[in-house]
Nucleic acid binder design. Structure first.
Length: 579
RNA sequence: GUCCCGGUAACUCAGCUGGAUAGAGUGUCUCCCUCCUAAGGAGAAAGCCGCAGGUUCGAAUCCUGCUCGGGACGCCA
C-alpha cells in the first residue's frame, strides 16, 4: 500500500473539480512535520488560491468538502494559511497492517516491470579490490536489490577492468613465474605484490618493458599464448573479487561480469558508425567528437576522444559500446552506472555522444549514480598509516575482528561459534550501513567507533532491534507463523508505528527512483525507534494485558520484524535471531 | 579560466517536487531496569542553515553575485 500516492490521488481528484483548475494541476502532498498536524498534509490550497485569485482558506474548505477520504482519514483540518492536515483512521491503518502482514512483499506494490541495467563494482583486475571499490559495489547492489523487489528485471553488469596496457607487463611477469614452475594461483595470491613486482621490472629491468609492450600488441592481436596467460591472470583475479563479494554479502555472480575486454570487438564498429554519421571527426590525429552543447563561454566545444592518434581505443569508446549493448541488446529501459563522482563529466559527454549517434534508444534512460570518496578521520582520502591503499578484504576482516571484541565484552549465552557468526554479520553490516546511510553524492568520513557502536543510527542497533522482537516472540510462546490476530490500534505510539510500517513502500520507491539507499537506511532507523517507543508504551507480555490486545500488538511487532529484515536484506545486511 | 559537487548544532549527517516552531545520531546533563538482552526508553541544553541580494503569501530548498573546500576539463579509467 502506497499511502502517499493514495492520499495524493484523492486530493488530485478533488481539486480538478474546482472551477478553473487544470487536469494536471500539481497536488503537493507532504508528510507532516509534527504529529499534531496528522500524518500527511496537503499544501495545494495556497497555490490554487493564488491562481484563482481567491482566499486560500476558502479554497482549502472547498477542497475538504470535495475530497473523498472518508474511508482513510478520521479528520481533515485546515490550519495556518491553508494547510490541510490529514489524520489517518486507526481502523483503516489496522486493515492495511493486516494486509501487509499476509502480503509476500510486505505491502509493497509491484510496479510495471521494466528492464534495468545496473553497472556496479567494476574493479580493476590488475590489482586487488581496495576501499575505493566498496561504494560502487554496495550502493549498486542495494539499489539493484530494491529495484528488483519492485518487480523489475534487473541485469547486473560488473564492468571489470580486464583490459589495457598494464596487462602486458602483468602477463609477461606471470609467464616468467610460471616458467619458474610456480602455479598461477600462488603466484597471484597477492595481486598488489605481484603488480608491484611487475612494475619494478617494467621500470628497471633491461628489455622487460619492451617485452611487456610487445605482449600488449600480441594480446590485442589475439595471440593464443598471450591470451592463455591473460585468461589465467584474470581468472585468478576474479576469484579474489568473488571472495570479497562473498564476504561482503553482495549479490554478484560470474555471469554478471561483462568486462571491458568483452566490448573489444564492438569498438571499431562504434567509431566507424559515428564517423559515417559525421559526428566523429579527426583532430590532431585523433578521432574525436566536438560537443557544442558543453562549450565554454568562448565557444570552444568540449572534446570527447573515441580513438587515439596512434589508433587505440579508450574507456570512452568502451563506454559507448557498453551503452549500445545495454540499450539494444539487453533492451534496457534504464541504465544506472555507479562510479565515483569524478567521472560525472565523462558520462555526461558519453550520453550526449550516444544520443546523437543513436547508440542508445530514445526511451532508454542513462543515469550516472556518482558517489563521493571515503575519507579518513583527518578528512583526507582514506589510506593506511604509510599512505598506501587499503585492501578491501583487510578492511572487512578488521571490522569483523573489532565487532568480535566488542561482542566479547558483553554477557552472552551464545556459543563461541554463534558469537563468531554474529561478529561477522555485525562487522560487515556496520561497514555497509555506515556507507549506505550517507548521501551517496558526498564524501564521508570513515570512523570505526561510530559505525560499530550499538547505540544510535548504526547497523548493530538495527540488527539488535530485530533480535529484540524475535526474543519477544520466543518469550510469548506465540508462533509467528500461525499468528492470526484482530488488529486494533489504540495508543499514539501504536498508531505512529503502524503509519511508519505502511511507509515502507514510499521509502522503497524513493530509493528506486533516485538510486539513494540512504533513504531506506533512515527509514529503517526511524522504524526501529518507532518500535522501541511502541514497546515502552504498549505492553504485550505484562500481567493483565488482555489476550486480544497482546495478539494485536504481537502482530504489529511481527510486521516490524519482517520489514526490518526485508529492508536490511535489500541493503545487503544480514540479521540474526539472537545476538 | 570554464563547468560540476558540497558548506546545516561541538562532531557525523538527514531535510523528497519551496510550506507551519530546521531534524536525527554521537557527545554533554536529568530521569526510568517486576513485558524483550539498559546493546533500551523519556526529557533538556545546543543552529546568523557559508555571506549578500533577489523571486513570493512563504526560501535551508529556486535565481544572481561572492566566498571557502573538493573535483573535472584531448589521447589514463
Amino acid at each position: 500500500m502506497n499511502v502517499f500516492q493514495l492520499v495524493q490521488d484523492r486530493f488530485r481528484q478533488a481539486i480538478v473539480k474546482i472551477d478553473g483548475v487544470e487536469q494536471n494541476a500539481p497536488a503537493p502532498l507532504a508528510r507532516s512535520s509534527r504529529p499534531e498536524f496528522g500524518e500527511y498534509q496537503f499544501n495545494g490550497a495556497m497555490a490554487l488560491a493564488k491562481m484563482l485569485k481567491s482566499n486560500p482558506r476558502q479554497i482549502a474548505t472547498q477542497i475538504v468538502e470535495l475530497v473523498n477520504l472518508d474511508d482513510v482519514a478520521e479528520s481533515l483540518d485546515i490550519a495556518g494559511p491553508g494547510f490541510i492536515n490529514v489524520k489517518l483512521k486507526p481502523e483503516w491503518l489496522s486493515e492495511q497492517v493486516a494486509a501487509s502482514l499476509t502480503s509476500e512483499s510486505l505491502g509493497v506494490e509491484k510496479e510495471q516491470a521494466k528492464t534495468v541495467v545496473v553497472d556496479l563494482s567494476s574493479p580493476n583486475l590488475a590489482k586487488e579490490m581496495h576501499v575505493g571499490h566498496l561504494r560502487s559495489t554496495i550502493i549498486g547492489d542495494a539499489v539493484a536489490n530494491v529495484i528488483e523487489f519492485l518487480g523489475h528485471k534487473v541485469i547486473r553488469q560488473n564492468h571489470m577492468g580486464d583490459w589495457g596496457t598494464q596487462f602486458g607487463m602483468l602477463i609477461a611477469h606471470l609467464q616468467d613465474k610460471l616458467q619458474a614452475s610456480e602455479v598461477a594461483t600462488t603466484a597471484l595470491s597477492d595481486l598488489e605484490d605481484f603488480y608491484r613486482q611487475a612494475k619494478i621490472r617494467f621500470d628497471e629491468e633491461e628489455g622487460f618493458a619492451d617485452r611487456a609492450r610487445q605482449y600488449v600488441v600480441k594480446l590485442q592481436g589475439g595471440d593464443p599464448e598471450c591470451e592463455t596467460l591473460w585468461k589465467k591472470f584474470i581468472d585468478v583475479s576474479i576469484q579474489h573479487s568473488e571472495e570479497v563479494y562473498e564476504k561482503l554479502n553482495v549479490n554478484l555472480k560470474r555471469s554478471d561480469i561483462m568486462g571491458e575486454s568483452a566490448y573489444n570487438p564492438m569498438l571499431p564498429g562504434v567509431v566507424a558508425d559515428l564517423k559515417e554519421q559525421g559526428i566523429v571527426v579527426e583532430d590532431q590525429g585523433a578521432q574525436v567528437v566536438f560537443l557544442e552543447e558543453l562549450a565554454n563561454k568562448d565557444g570552444e566545444p568540449a572534446v570527447y576522444i573515441v580513438e587515439k592518434s596512434g589508433g587505440g581505443y579508450l574507456y570512452s569508446t568502451t563506454d559507448l559500446a557498453a551503452m549500445k549493448y545495454r540499450s539494444f541488446d539487453l533492451n534496457a529501459d534504464r541504465i544506472i552506472i555507479f562510479t565515483d563522482a569524478r567521472q560525472a563529466f565523462h558520462f555526461k559527454q558519453a550520453e550526449l555522444v550516444g544520443r546523437k549517434g543513436g547508440l542508445i534508444k530514445d526511451e532508454t534512460s542513462y543515469e550516472h549514480g556518482p558517489f563521493g570518496m571515503m575519507l579518513g578521520q583527518d578528512g583526507k582520502p582514506f589510506k593506511t598509516r604509510t599512505g598506501g591503499t587499503i585492501k578491501l578484504v583487510d578492511l572487512l576482516d578488521e571490522s569483523v575482528e573489532r565487532a568480535g571484541k566488542l561482542l566479547a565484552e558483553r554477557d552472552s549465552d551464545l556459543s563461541a561459534e554463534e558469537q563468531q557468526e554474529v561478529a561477522r554479520k555485525v562487522g560487515i553490516g556496520a561497514i555497509k550501513y555506515a556507507d549506505l546511510s550517507k548521501n551517496r553524492t558526498t564524501d564521508y568520513i570513515f570512523n570505526w567507533d561510530t559505525m560499530l557502536s550499538f547505540e544510535g543510527d548504526t547497523a548493530p542497533y538495527l540488527q539488535y532491534a530485530y533480535t529484540r522482537i524475535k526474543s519477544i516472540f520466543r518469550k510469548s510462546g506465540v508462533d509467528a507463523e500461525s499468528l492470526n490476530a484482530d488488529l486494533k490500534i489504540t495508543e499514539a505510539q501504536e498508531k505512529a508505528l503502524a503509519v511508519k510500517l505502511l511507509q515502507f513502500n514510499e521509502a522503497i520507491l524513493t530509493v528506486s527512483v533516485n538510486s539513494t539507499p540512504h533513504v531506506l537506511c533512515s527509514y529503517l532507523y526511524e522504524l526501529s525507534s518507532s518500535f522501541m517507543s511502541f514497546y515502552e508504551a504498549c505492553p504485550m507480555l505484562k500481567e493483565g494485558v488482555a489476550e486480544d490486545v497482546k495478539l494485536s500488538r504481537l502482530a504489529i511487532s511481527l510486521l516490524t520484524a519482517k520489514t526490518l529484515k526485508k529492508g536490511l536484506d535489500l541493503l545487503g545486511i544480514e540479521t540474526m535471531e539472537r545476538m
